[in-house]
Nucleic acid binder design. Sequence first.
DNA 1: ACCTGAACACCGTTCAAGT
DNA 2: ACCTGAACACCGTTCAAGT
Lengths: 234, 234
Amino acid sequence: MISLNGEADNRIHLNRDVIVSCAIAIADAEGIDAITIRRLAQELNVTAMAPYRHFRDKEDLLNGIAEKLLAGVNLPKTTCLTWDQELALVFSQLVAALRLHPSVAELVLTRILLSAPGLTLAELVFKLLTDAGFESEQVGQIGNYALSSLVAIVTTQPGAVTNPDPEIRDALLREKRILLASLSPRNYPHVVAAADTLVSCTDDDSYYALGVKLVIEGIKGLKSDLSDQTDSNL
Amino acid sequence: MISLNGEADNRIHLNRDVIVSCAIAIADAEGIDAITIRRLAQELNVTAMAPYRHFRDKEDLLNGIAEKLLAGVNLPKTTCLTWDQELALVFSQLVAALRLHPSVAELVLTRILLSAPGLTLAELVFKLLTDAGFESEQVGQIGNYALSSLVAIVTTQPGAVTNPDPEIRDALLREKRILLASLSPRNYPHVVAAADTLVSCTDDDSYYALGVKLVIEGIKGLKSDLSDQTDSNL
DNA sequence: ACCTGAACACCGTTCAAGT
DNA sequence: ACCTGAACACCGTTCAAGT
């Protein structure tokens, strides 16, 4: 049946990517808890049950969000870098992708191995750790630590505040600042001294750069321990 | 009015700690999503609204859970340790406390500065980082990284699987193992090689010990960079 | 193949009462 | 002071139909 009427058809053609993109947009604007199947359906001018043609259940939708975030990680193609330089680059790209949508970043924490883009990322990280000289058991563990740490760093970024509203966001930040400012400097001198740093970032880029560096330095530290026992080449 | 009847009164005297403990027990048995106000009320033989005398809303309850976990961290009292040794000890104790209830560990990620025990922990970590020679801005950032990383490590522990049922747990683990085993070794050789490590731990203790070491080594690596620029004493 | 519509069991939370 | 009871607006998800 040909569409005869002049009314605009508000129904976008539904598919996984459209739904996932819509969910991310909702979370960007109102926080992760605003992602519900019914809200999504409403936003897409469709019945509450329509999304279920494309997702088995809500968990499947959340997996789809994590997958989309991971697909946004810009992995280096060719490379004339040392393993630690390339690893630092990969980590930076992961952080860069997650920073675009901080309120859904937490979904990635437990879902890296559940999608192709996540597996591609993990594969590259594991390969670089193998190049570095770690045993296969340590490769899995260290890779796991590193990826988890970086996701967590984005999730807990000082200025983050999981964003329930563009306006309330500022109120929450102010509240957090006041809470830290009201602490007794006698009981928590170092927390009070670091309060400004903890509630907002002067420079997000350098904040994340330091985070990546911490992880890389940690891995290099573990490697030194290894080579102390096995060989002594740099 | 004196209780005249012989029936046992199933209603425990309600307070924050009783409710929080019950919530943690529910999560231990059935996963974090099983924590609902109504379920809690039912478990405590009380009306759905009764918990609201002790918690403003569900968020307040989740804060209470995080607080209880952090209160379980056994901080060292006196100390004749160097800053890095004591920091390693504190981190180990944090991990030890979180490991007792892995399915609610994630709640701590964004709630450390919201309770007294969390603030005490953060204060000690920040103090030790200050002792190590970091500037106050770096103290806050590095402390944040380290604590976030350790919480994340517990949340993503290989054998963890957020536990929706003692029986389904094994099924999920098997499923995960099969998923990784079914991957093409051509596309993901290093992931496949690390599959066993990723799905379960041969030794949880050494897994977490390595995680703590990674963070400590990372911090020491950052410190070396500092002292390279300022002075050269070890 | 893809969407609708009604229904079910369950949530968090409000408000006004009870004792 | 602390708990109850009824009600409201919202969830995820099922099932049977529609086109």
